[in-house]
Design a binder for these strands. Structure first.
Length: 480
DNA sequence: CGTTTTTGACCCGCGC
DNA sequence: GCGCGGGTCAAAAACG
């Protein structure tokens, strides 16, 4: 009976396979699905086999084929169809997953390719590259946005009266602590002045990503996160151990020092301090690079920084780069550069808050401002504008756990920033600008508008793609 | 009892 | 050189 059992199991599973119209491919995921299906079948089959074995007692082995037919006939049709549905679903799942992997790899190679172009272009320049990006998006479609460029030239902003709740803003700034302080102060002053001007001219500005890339030689990676948070620290998924506390000058709130304890010897540290102006705002500054895989809960934050690295396509930690962008894989998983992210923007004053001297400090590197002027309802209102939150249950969803307020927002910002399409769009825009600049000579920095291309526009799929429009040069906003 | 937090001391870089 | 401020160390205390 043992032999028969085995044979029947095999035959049944093969029958299922043969019912698949598509030719069987040797693919890991499909095979896994088949194996799983087989194992599911086994339980059912064993029951059938017991009956069949009793009925077939005394019969010779040659009759096994007819017995299988009998078994198959007796197999409950709903079970079959249910299993087939399940199998199809799993195959679909596998396809989706495979597509995600392929897309990621494709995007990665595309970024590498484009970066090599950028690197070539920049190798002819002696100046530190400075790239300013200003990106905006809203859930309703195209939204042009005022930009600030290298020379802080301000381009006009079109009228917009869309629902602010559907808007998302990011401000991404990279700063150079290696600068001479005086020079930096002057630049800050200039920048603040121009930002104020932008704010005045475009009081209704909704959201913007402003990226300022200036390659700092041999600087430590620092990421500051501003969130409204009632708890003592931001729950970022990592384990931290407090090793010190100080009263910093200018802020009566003590600054706490934490060390990452996820892995022994991890050099990552963070400082936590309440904002002087708004005690509900928690400023968390991360420094260093983890020497271990991040916990799932911490991946979102890291992916934001990773996205920033993609924005910049720079690796300041590479001494060979010497101010020249050098795209390395090592720069991707963890933050190696400084940037400032400010998605505050659903209402004003967004950029004003970003440049508040109390926390606008280029030497501090990245400031990821996840605060919103209003209550947490603002944050929730922002959520629909994030097109990248996976909705399919089979998508690797790190946002499935309900979170409140800023942490939730942070993760969604991360999701957007880490979107490969978004990165590719940014990379393409930078490349385009670099090429243009190479031909026309140095000019003002690039200004880009990022928007979500929805179906009927440049993409036909149901998912949104990121499109960056360059506003520099002719300033006609023609998509790159 | 092991781990974490607290807190004063110490170190170091920077400006004067 | 000195003072100041930021950051870290490490012993003691607190905690689970």
């Amino acid at each position: 009976m043992g032999r028969e059992d085995k044979k029947m199991e095999i035959d049944l599973s093969l029958k299922i396979d043969s019912q698949e119209e598509a030719p069987r491919k040797v693919q890991d995921d499909d095979e896994r699905a088949d194996v799983k299906l087989d194992s599911q079948y086994k339980e059912d089959v064993v029951e059938e086999e017991e009956d069949a074995a009793m009925a077939a007692s005394g019969e010779v082995l040659e009759d096994s084929e007819s017995m299988q037919l009998s078994l198959q006939d007796n197999m409950k049709t709903e079970e079959l169809s249910a299993l087939q549905i399940e199998m199809n679903r799993m195959k679909e799942e596998n396809k989706v997953l495979r597509r995600v992997v392929e897309q990621t790899m494709k995007d990665f190679h595309e970024l590498q390719r484009q970066f090599s172009i950028v690197q070539q272009n920049n190798s002819q320049k002696n100046n530190d590259p400075q790239v300013f990006l200003s990106l905006s998006s809203n859930g309703s479609g195209i939204q042009e946005q005022a930009m600030i460029s290298d020379t802080r030239k301000i381009s006009p902003l079109k009228d917009h009266d869309t629902d602010k709740d559907n808007e998302l803003g990011l401000s991404l700034r990279l700063s150079d602590s290696g600068y001479d302080r005086q020079q930096r102060k002057e630049e800050q002053k200039q920048e603040i002045t121009n930002l104020m001007e932008v704010q005045r001219n475009h009081l209704n500005s909704l959201s913007a990503i402003t990226s300022h890339v200036a390659v700092p030689p041999n600087r430590k990676a620092r990421v500051s996160v501003r969130t409204r948070c009632q708890s003592a620290t931001l729950n970022d998924g990592c384990q931290w151990r407090k090793y010190g506390q100080k009263i910093a000058k200018g802020n009566p709130c003590p600054r706490a020092y934490y060390r990452c304890t996820v892995a022994p010897g991890c050099p990552v540290r963070k400082q936590v301090q309440r904002c002087l102006e708004d005690m509900s705002i928690l400023i968390t500054t991360y420094e260093g690079t983890h020497n271990h895989p991040l916990p799932v809960g911490a991946t979102a934050m890291a992916s934001t920084a990773s996205a920033a690295a993609s924005f910049m396509l720079l690796d300041s930690s590479n001494p060979l780069s010497n101010g020249i962008p050098s795209f390395t894989q090592a720069s991707l998983p963890y933050p190696n550069n400084a940037f400032l992210l400010n998605p505050s923007a659903s209402s004003l004053p967004s950029n004003i808050r970003t440049i508040n001297p109390n926390y606008y400090d280029p030497s501090k590197g990245v400031v990821l401002d996840l605060t919103t002027p209003g209550s947490s309802s603002h944050n929730n209102a922002l959520l629909p504008s994030f097109p990248l939150i996976p909705e399919k249950p089979n998508y690797p969803n790190i946002f499935s756990t309900p979170r409140e307020g800023q942490e939730f927002l942070a993760e969604n910002v991360s999701a957007m920033a880490s979107d490969p399409k978004f990165r590719v769009a940014v990379a393409a825009a930078i490349t385009s600008w670099m090429n243009k600049e190479n031909q026309t000579g140095p000019s003002i920095g690039p200004c880009f508008v990022a928007r979500e291309a929805v179906g009927g526009e440049s993409v036909s799929t149901s998912t949104k793609n990121w499109v960056l429009e360059s506003l520099s040069g002719n300033g006609n906003g023609k998509p790159n």
